[in-house]
């Protein structure tokens, strides 16, 4: 990638625990327009996966963009992706750049 291109990473989180175990802040019409990971709880699926990091911005969940979604809408989308029995994982497209 070029030096000025923002980099994004696709992280597949297997549903290895009963909770996803992340806390997010942000969403449309707030200071943080895309959801940012603020906590990763030990023992949750995200922690077990080991690839999500505090501070990363979530761009997409299972290929669905979070751009323009308000906080509660983004949180609901992530919660439903984790709860859904369609897949035994959740795909996150994340970036380290804010």
């Amino acid at each position: 990638p070029g030096l000025l291109e923002p980099t994004s990473t696709l992280v597949r989180v297997p549903k290895s625990a009963s909770t996803l175990g992340i806390a997010i802040e942000g969403g449309a019409n707030t200071r943080q327009p895309l959801p940012r990971i603020v906590t990763i709880q030990r023992g949750g699926s995200a922690h077990n996966c080991g690839q999500l990091k505090v501070g990363q911005i979530i761009l997409e969940v299972n290929g669905v963009s979070l751009r323009g979604r308000e906080h509660r809408d983004a949180a609901r989308l992530i919660a439903e992706a984790f709860k859904s029995k369609e897949r035994d994982y959740v795909d996150f497209l994340v970036t380290d750049f804010n």
């Binding site: 909770t19 802040e25 969403g27 200071r31 919660a79």
Partner: peptide
């Protein structure tokens, strides 16, 4: 007159 210069902070949700 007060003017909002920045967007409000977000709530935090545990998932």
């Amino acid at each position: 007159r007060e003017k909002r210069l920045t967007l409000p902070p977000s709530e935090i949700t545990l998932l």
